[in-house]
Computed example of a mutant assay.
Amino acid sequence: MACRVLAARGLADGILGHISLRISENALLVRCRGTRERGLAYTDAADIRMVDLDGNAAAEGELDGGYAVPNELPLHTEVLRRRPDVKAVVHAHPPHVVAADLAGLGIRPMVGAFDIPGTRLAAGGIPVYPRGVLVRNRSLAAEMVEAMGGRPVVLLRGHGLTSAAATVEQAVLQAISVDTLARLALQVASAGGELQDLPESDMAELPDLGGAFNTNTAWRHEVARLGERR
């Protein structure tokens, strides 16, 4: 469902992008590609496979039928190895995020009640991994995680983003917020405006609406939107 949400939001058009979920110390569920790959918008349960941190089947038959782990599996597993606070990792290719970064427009806390979780996320800083490479091995993944630090999201220059959280839902919603801020930045710049951070006095007035609203309600909305697209 999360893969479909990414596609519906335009963060993972086509066949690129993947999501993982840690289920034990050495095993994760990850969106794989099979011989009948159709893209993230058409992900079903059969596309989700259980593997270990080295990309091997974590149970008999998990990679049967022509299924293969993503080339960038190390992007997921290195985050999980180095960040015990993380259980879910999203990797997506949002065009507006890539464009805003290449244009020198950082992801800034420039809105208020428009997107409170997104504003708080941006206020903490969104780091950038400055290499536009396929993160296909542990060495490159380690560079990305180093750039990410302890932050929830890192931009990958000329590539996309990686979002990490305690749940799949939160990791996806973080990616959506970053994409929304990137779109707004591009729109402001194209209109000749100047990006300005929200004043500290306004930041202090933004309430924490809690996980039940920020995550649970927001996620129900994303799932409901999928039904409207059918």
Rank of each mutant, 00 (worst) to 15 (best):
G112D: 01
V178R: 00
M50I: 15
I15F: 06
M144T: 04
D64C: 15
Q196T: 14
E194I: 08
R120L: 11
F213H: 06
D13K: 10
V135I: 10
D52F: 03
A191F: 06
V98A: 05
A2P: 11
T217D: 15
T119W: 00
L6W: 01
P109S: 04
L140K: 01
L181N: 06
I19F: 03
L226N: 01
A122R: 06
G124F: 09
A68G: 09
A2M: 11
A46H: 12
V128G: 04
L53G: 11
L226W: 09
V90G: 00
A46W: 07
R138C: 03
G55K: 14
S163M: 05
E194D: 08
V111H: 06
A45D: 06
G104C: 15
C32E: 10
A8M: 12
V111L: 12
T162P: 00
G104W: 12
V79I: 10
L186R: 03
G112W: 02
V98P: 01
P117E: 02
A122Y: 13
R151I: 03
V145N: 10
V69L: 05
L209G: 01
V30P: 09
H96S: 14
D202L: 10
D208E: 13
Q187N: 05
E143K: 11
R120Y: 10
G112R: 00
L181E: 06
R120K: 15
D208W: 11
Q187A: 12
T215D: 06
E62F: 04
C3L: 13
E146F: 01
R151W: 02
S24T: 14
V79P: 02
A164G: 07
V79T: 06
A204K: 14
G39S: 14
R36I: 13
A46F: 08
L80A: 05
V86T: 10
G132A: 15
A166L: 03
L73I: 08
R136A: 15
L195C: 04
L6D: 00
G149P: 04
L28C: 07
V86Q: 10
E78H: 08
L121H: 01
G192S: 10
